[in-house]
């Protein structure tokens, strides 16, 4: 029996009804190639070297010897296989493209909004551009990375995406925030 599978975004129907852009904007990416990479025992340096030397991958620190790898170059269907080939026996790769949702929060109050729920110092000196960390946002664990002076990427488990967007709206209540999909 053949099935027709249809990719439905975790936030379809919850956001995107109003296309508007305020001072601070939360942009939800529709598709993103994501994989989790865990280096083999004692092979952290080798795996990190392969990930860093390649401009096609963006490796975000998740834990010691563990990275969340995103790619703008590879498709969600091929990233995990590509990483497995490149990393060989140095690391284990698990595809997360449909398991996680990527959100970009940008605007002059981005750090202030996040500070309402995240207990990590987000000052540019303490959390510079490119720094990534797994953090607790209210009750949700997510991967946070600073992509610019005024922009952050949040990667959250798919089933928590709705709760996270609701939380962010509450956290941004005293700031001007709009929420929409990155592509319509």
């Amino acid at each position: 029996m053949a099935y027709d599978y249809q990719a439905v975004h975790a936030l379809d129907g919850m956001i995107g009804a109003i296309a508007e852009r305020r001072a601070n904007h939360l942009s939800v990416h529709r598709t993103m190639a994501i994989a989790m990479v865990l280096a083999g025992p004692g092979q952290t340096a080798e795996a990190a070297g392969i990930l860093v030397s390649n401009g096609e991958f963006e490796a975000r620190f998740s834990g010691p010897g563990e990275w969340l790898v995103l790619s703008q170059v590879h498709a969600p269907e091929t990233l995990a296989a590509e990483l497995s080939v490149r990393l060989g026996g140095f690391a284990f790769v698990v595809d997360q493209s449909h398991g996680r949702v990527v959100l970009t929060l940008s605007g002059p109050d981005a750090a202030r909004i996040l500070a309402n729920g995240i207990a990590v110092d987000l000052h540019a000196d303490a959390f510079p551009v490119g720094r990534a960390a797994n953090v607790l946002c209210n009750h949700l664990s997510l991967n946070l990375v600073r992509t610019g002076d005024q922009s952050f990427d949040l990667v959250v488990m798919r089933s928590f995406a709705g709760a996270l967007v609701d939380d962010l709206k509450v956290m941004a209540r005293s700031h001007d925030l709009s929420v929409d999909f990155a592509t319509r």
Partner: peptide, 13 residues
């Protein structure tokens, strides 16, 4: 005292 703590919301170590 010495205790085992797990950083569940962070590095999970």
């Amino acid at each position: 005292i010495r205790e085992h703590w797990q950083h569940v919301a962070g590095c999970r170590r």
